[in-house]
Structures are given as structure tokens and as C-alpha cells.
């Protein structure tokens, strides 16, 4: 075969493969939306789930997912910020920094089920916290930390070193230079990273099955007392999230309309995550424009 024919075949194959991938994605998203969206109704979003009857909704699961996401970000952002600053600004070039980086890589490559089991062992069992939003948020924090840390580190590093010199040459401390000059300049990247990580956290289930638990007890949305066990804000209650719910109804299979509930829940999950992605791009671009142009 002469090179020209080979070239044509090879390039053709590449196009075919790419087309197949695009087709797969389109059909996956299409399938979820086509089967799921018709099931999404006000009733579905606002009524509680059913174990043995059909017609259950996802109100509590949806709220749990959002609440858990909120707590996770509250826990993980400060730690990731501190660590990101350390890696981008303070870390000397030596073997200790190498070890630290490797440690973070190890954490990020641990299967989420292992992170979940560790939290189950330490917090749920040994510390007697039990299946709870708190345990779940801790597990998700561990799961989220390495990526968020790396994102913050990269956002900080992408700010020109000239800005650091400018700050230092004015007699500012390194800390004020970082927090007052570098960090604000890195905000677009950091916000984008947070929203993207929020999408990941929102869809995570393996780390939650044995930490936040698989049950959604009846909660009272009018009870604002965080310490009351029936309050929707109580972090010590077990809380099944939307992602865990999808897994549960499919693997235990006693809900008669499991398929419909899962399609509906999957559609809600996908739509929310797509919104997260869009929001991330949009806010990132907006902030970037705002900072570099006239305002």
C-alpha cells in the first residue's frame, strides 16, 4: 500500500473513532434526558421517596446532596487554600516538597471507595459519629482535597512572578502580597476549579454509602434548630444523597418504579452537573474579563 492510501485510511479511521465517541456521548445524554425528563415533575422534586410503593420523589435526597456539597466545600476550601498557597508560594525545591507532592498524588489516586471505607472505620465506627452528614462531608472533603489543592496551586502559579516582586518591593510581607495581590488575581481560576469540583462532589456516591448512609429519615424543613434530630440542618443525621439514591433503588430493587425514579434522578443529576460546568465557564470568563478590562 502506498503512503497516500495509508494516509487516507488512517485519517479516515481517526474521524470514524471520533464520530463514534461523539455518538456515544450524544446517545447517553439523549437517553437520560429522553427517559428522565418526562418523569421530572413538581411532585417528583418535592415529595419524599418511597421504598415499597411507586410514585416516590427525591425531595430529601436533593436537599441532602446540596447540603452535603455545601458542608464539603466549607471544610475543604480553607484547607485546600492553605495547602495550595504552601505549594505555590512557600514550598522550597527539595525532597520534602517532593514527598508532599507525592502524598497528594497518592490521595488523589486512591479509589473513592477506599476513602469512604477509611472514613467509615475512623469516624462512623471508631469515633461513634454514626452514619451522618458530617461523616459524609468529611469523606467528600478527603476526596475533594487533592484536586482542589492542585487547582488553587496552579491558579496561583499562573499569576506572573512580576506581581510578587511588585508587592515585595513595596515592603509588603510575603503573606500580604499573596493574599492581597496574587490571590485576587487568581480568583477566576479558583472559582472555576471550585465549581468543577462541586460537580464531582455532587455526583459522588461510593464514598458516601458507608459514611452519610443510605437512608433518608423524615426531616422537618421548618425546624431550624441545628441540634434537633429532626431538623433538616442537623449534620448528625444520616442522609442519602441523590447519587446514592440512584444506586440504592437499582441494587436493592424493591421499589416498583425503580427505573423511572432512577431515570428522573439521573436526569436531575446530569442537568445540575451540566449547569455547574456551564456556570464554571461563564463565571471564569466573566471574572477574567472584569479584571483585565475597564470597570
Amino acid at each position: 500500500m502506498n503512503p497516500k492510501t495509508t494516509n487516507k485510511i488512517a485519517i479516515g479511521l481517526i474521524y470514524t473513532f471520533v464520530a463514534i465517541v461523539v455518538a456515544i456521548l450524544v446517545s447517553l445524554i439523549g437517553y437520560i434526558l429522553v427517559t428522565g425528563v418526562p418523569h421530572i415533575s413538581w411532585h417528583f422534586l418535592t415529595s419524599k421517596s418511597q421504598s415499597f410503593l411507586s410514585g416516590g420523589g427525591i425531595r430529601d435526597q436533593l436537599f441532602n446532596s446540596v447540603y452535603l456539597l455545601f458542608l464539603t466545600l466549607c471544610l475543604s476550601f480553607p484547607i485546600a487554600l492553605g495547602s495550595g498557597i504552601y505549594l505555590a508560594e512557600y514550598a522550597p525545591k527539595n525532597w520534602i516538597t517532593e514527598v508532599i507532592r507525592t502524598t497528594i498524588e497518592v490521595l488523589s489516586s486512591l479509589p473513592s471507595v477506599v476513602v469512604g471505607l477509611f472514613c467509615y472505620l475512623l469516624f462512623v465506627v471508631q469515633m461513634h459519629i454514626g452514619f451522618s452528614i458530617l461523616s459524609g462531608a468529611i469523606a467528600l472533603t478527603f476526596f475533594n482535597l487533592p484536586l482542589l489543592t492542585r487547582n488553587i496551586e496552579n491558579s496561583l502559579k499562573s499569576v506572573s512572578h512580576l506581581q510578587r516582586e511588585a508587592g515585595l518591593s513595596l515592603g509588603l510581607s510575603q503573606w500580604k502580597t499573596i493574599t492581597g495581590i496574587i490571590l485576587p488575581a487568581a480568583v477566576p481560576g479558583i472559582i472555576t476549579g471550585i465549581i468543577l469540583s462541586a460537580g464531582r462532589v455532587f455526583g459522588e456516591a461510593a464514598a458516601l454509602i458507608y459514611t452519610a448512609g443510605q437512608s433518608a429519615p423524615i426531616i422537618d424543613y421548618t425546624n431550624w434548630n441545628v441540634f434537633s434530630s429532626s431538623s433538616f440542618l442537623n449534620p448528625m443525621r444520616p442522609a442519602e444523597t441523590l447519587a446514592v439514591h440512584i444506586w440504592k433503588v437499582n441494587s436493592e430493587g424493591i421499589t416498583p418504579d425503580a427505573n423511572l425514579v432512577s431515570s428522573g434522578s439521573s436526569a436531575v443529576l446530569i442537568i445540575l452537573i451540566l449547569l455547574f460546568n456551564l456556570l464554571a465557564h461563564w463565571i471564569g470568563n466573566l471574572l477574567y474579563k472584569k479584571m483585565t478590562s475597564n470597570f
Binding site: S160, L162, Q163, E165, S169, I181, P184, A185, T292
Partner: peptide, 12 residues
């Protein structure tokens, strides 16, 4: 004080 080769105003 010091002024550098490349202008480096803050993004403010």
C-alpha cells in the same frame, strides 16, 4: 523602593 524592567501594575 524598586521599579522593574517590565511594567507590573496590580490587577486593580
Amino acid at each position: 523602593g524598586m521599579v522593574f524592567q517590565r511594567p507590573n501594575p496590580f490587577a486593580k
